[in-house]
Design a protein around this nucleic acid. Structure first.
Lengths: 203, 203
DNA sequence: GGCAAATAGTTACATTTGTCACAAAACTTC
DNA sequence: GAAGTTTTGTGACAAATGTAACTATTTGCC
């Protein structure tokens, strides 16, 4: 029997999840909470799995995930979200969540995902996995095409000389463009640019 | 009903998985293959999910995952492995696998993981997730403690000046140590080091 | 005690990097 | 065709980076 706690500021979401998941014979919904604070208080009831919304008033999903994981490391937490927000994925997983799913899943899928999670496996939507594995191109949009080319090569560890050869440019141009890129992204040097490319904005 | 294909060069593993998973009422084991080639041939039987060993003769799990995903994108592939090899994780996921699990899982857990996968979710062991998200410390072992400290800070984008302040060293020492680090890891500059730290060796 | 490694330092040098000012094609867009 | 952006370039400069040679403590170990 998997004991569940549902945390979402929208009562409608809570109720429908409670109703639908409650129908599964191997699930028991211990209760619902409408914000992070209430969620922490309700951990006394010893749930196995918490389904947690990310955006909530009072205390958001990531904050409360951190707190819960500190006090109750055995509880598995799955973040629920309406869209995949790349920034939050990393934060949530670092906070200790082991699932990150879109609310659009069918109940049957969700139930299977919860079962897999309850044994400790990490469950993600495929998009979410992609977002973790692939470089962060989202904020590179303010760059021109040519600038993006340069970023790619810097992120592979090439020197200005090598970049100029790859792209058939003079070194001076490469350096000028790099200055513009660093300025646009508010970074200081190529190393920070490479880190940004692969890791995204720090905190 | 989830239709399965089991691929492993060890007949014992194949047989026991076939026997144990076959007991689940919602699973049907379509067959077993002993290498990547056979696996591709057997995809004609239209499995939903393939459980695939990584190390196999003739054609390994990653190669055949790539091929299968090209020809049959709808088939979900879960890699099975006896230990978590950080290098293979990325390769397997890039090849198109959406699960990466240790063979040591119980059959019940494995069944739940397969069910979650069959709906398209990615399922990973928590260690595996950690390996993807956390920096690659494996080959940093040949460095001394102090050198690792420096690597950490370079990988956060700090300048030599800033590193020397953080660690209470002279800039000269930082630069000397960095030279040694780059030499040990066969890298050229701090940017390549940062990339290596976050991304690991480029294939 | 002696040896090896790790830690920390200095000085000097060559190279790379990043910035700035300025400019000229090439390309869109109105 | 005028205006604005993108792309490309030069030259000069300051700062940061990486390397090399050499030294001095400290630490752990046989």
């Amino acid at each position: 029997m998997v004991k569940l706690l549902i945390v979402d500021d929208d009562p409608l979401v809570c109720q429908s999840l409670q109703l639908l998941l409650g129908k599964e014979t191997d699930f028991e919904v211990l209760g619902v909470a409408y914000n992070g604070w209430e969620a922490i208080e309700m951990c006394g009831r010893q749930p196995d799995v918490i389904l947690m919304d990310i955006q909530m008033p009072v205390m958001d999903g990531i904050e409360s995930t951190k707190k819960i994981k500190q006090q109750f490391p055995g509880i598995q937490i799955m973040m629920l979200t309406t869209f995949q927000d790349e920034r939050n994925i990393r934060l949530a997983l670092h906070a200790g969540a082991i699932g990150y799913l879109l609310k659009s899943s069918t109940i049957e899928n969700m139930a299977n995902q919860i079962r897999a999670m309850s044994s400790g496996s990490t469950v993600l939507s495929p998009d979410v996995l992609k977002a973790i594995m692939e470089p962060n191109r989202e904020d590179l949009q303010e760059l021109t095409e040519r600038e993006k080319d340069i970023v790619e090569l810097v992120a592979r560890g090439l020197s200005n000389q090598e970049i100029s050869e790859q792209l058939y440019l003079s070194i001076g141009s490469v350096r000028n463009m790099l200055t513009v890129i660093l300025d646009k992204l508010e970074l200081r040097d190529r190393t920070q640019l490479a880190i940004y490319y692969w890791q995204g904005k720090q905190q």
